[in-house]
């Protein structure tokens, strides 16, 4: 059977790209502007991390992927060896907080600083 393979080296039209970028930036800007206008009052803060959700999930200073008995989630091994690190994602379902697990790249700026700080703490 003949297998058709898509064209290699997909070419993105620079004009299309520029036009798309413009639209995207406009949408970002509009989103920002609308919030600045609408929410003059500062929102109340509701950002505490529920302690019970952290209990049992021992800090992972070593950077290994063994998760403590966090309860609802089973232990996961990062699919791509050491390149990824597991984080807990805190979300709200209505007004209930929930903890989920997710892998993110080890070099992601989001976890970099946490890791650095933790490393620094360890050294002390």
């Amino acid at each position: 059977d003949e297998v058709r393979v898509r064209q290699v080296a997909t070419h993105v039209d620079p004009q299309e790209e520029a036009e798309f970028d413009k639209e995207l930036r406009a949408l970002m800007q509009e989103s920002l502007d609308s919030r600045k206008l609408e929410l003059r009052a500062r929102p109340a803060l509701n950002m505490t991390i529920p302690i019970n959700m952290l209990e049992g999930s021992a800090k992972d200073h070593s950077g290994r992927y063994t998760e403590g008995e966090s309860g609802d989630e089973t232990t996961d091994i990062a699919p791509e060896g050491n390149k990824e690190v597991q984080v807990k994602v805190l979300v709200k379902r209505g007004h209930k907080q929930q903890m989920k697990h997710m892998y993110i790249p080890r070099d992601c700026s989001l976890v970099q600083s946490t890791k650095q700080k933790e490393a620094a703490e360890l050294e002390e």
Partner: peptide, 14 residues
């Protein structure tokens, strides 16, 4: 992300 925990949340810019 949290300063000390491996906890992340979504937060709006504005």
């Amino acid at each position: 992300s949290a300063k000390t925990e491996s906890v992340v949340v979504l937060l709006c810019r504005e």
